[in-house]
């Protein structure tokens, strides 16, 4: 499914967060949204999901404006993986994942056999089946993130919107989640994600968009957009884009902030390649 955002102003009534955002995501594409804290990434996502009405402009999915879609219809097409949070009540992993069937279960019904099968299949695909009866709040944060992804996938969406899916995860779990994103892309799901590690975009994104103060700074193919100059203007610090070579694999790129010690001493060993 494709997403087209045109001339979008977004935010809360009386409190606009961003404006003039136009971008589109092709079917099966991964778009990585970068931007400093408070730049409006989450608000943009919420608007795309129809959780907030657009203040101006329009959002279309496969060419159809979504503004008047019912909650049920939206949730059957677009799924949200929110930033990881603590559960308020001790639901089990299976109970949490089953909630992804909210858009399919009839108003007065409870999840049926088919819903359970979908949930179970998703848990198996994400290698989480052994956790099904664990309490969600008591599993590790990596497992929690995967559970939220599983919940979104039981919505059987065509578009997945992930808000910082790797926040608070250690390296191992970050890679686990990123690889999952690549698998989902392979399965044809369109993905919009945000992250604070621009290097992740080299690993899994087709396109990158950068947001600063609610405005789109740049948007385009990862290799073209993810440059030291752009990263500097979005984060306000020097960022080195470094090529690394792993033995036996083709080279990858990472981004590292180049820190300068305020006490005036020389700092990073890493040399930024000429921009």
């Amino acid at each position: 499914m494709s997403i087209d955002i045109a001339g979008l102003a977004f935010g809360y009534p009386g409190h606009p967060v961003g404006s003039d955002v136009s971008l589109s995501v092709a079917p099966g594409e991964v778009l990585c949204l970068l931007g400093p804290n408070g730049s409006g990434k989450t608000t943009l996502f919420k608007t795309t999901l129809g959780l907030l009405p657009p203040l101006k402009g329009r959002i279309a999915v496969d060419g159809e404006t979504t503004e008047r879609w019912s909650r049920r219809r939206t949730a059957q097409h677009l799924a949200y993986v929110p930033q990881q949070h603590d559960a308020y009540f001790p639901f089990t992993v299976m109970e949490v994942v089953l909630m992804g069937r909210g858009a399919y279960v009839a108003a007065f019904a409870t999840p049926g056999r088919h819903d359970r099968e979908v949930a179970e299949r998703t848990l198996r695909e994400l290698h989480l089946l052994h956790l099904r009866d664990q309490v969600y709040s008591q599993i590790s944060s990596g497992e929690r993130q995967l559970t939220l992804i599983a919940r979104a996938l039981t919505q059987q969406p065509r578009v997945l919107i992930m808000d910082e899916p790797t926040a608070n995860l250690d390296f191992g779990n970050q890679v686990l989640v990123l690889n999952q994103i690549l698998r989902l892309k392979q399965a044809g799901i369109t993905i919009m994600m945000s992250t604070h590690d621009p290097g992740q975009a080299f690993y899994c994104a087709d396109n990158v968009a950068m947001l600063r103060d609610g405005r789109l700074l740049c948007w385009g193919p990862t290799d073209e957009v993810l440059t030291s100059a752009n990263l500097r203007s979005v984060y306000g610090v020097d960022v080195a884009v470094v090529e690394i070579t792993k033995t036996g694999e083709h080279p990858g790129k990472v981004c590292v902030p180049v820190m300068s010690d305020p006490r005036g001493r020389a700092d990073s060993e890493i040399q930024a390649p000429p921009a």
Binding site: K46, T74, A75, Q76, Y80, P82, M99, G100
Partner: peptide, 11 residues
Amino acid sequence: SLGDEEARALG
């Protein structure tokens, strides 16, 4: 019980 936003995102 997940809160307004998540409930709405789930349909």
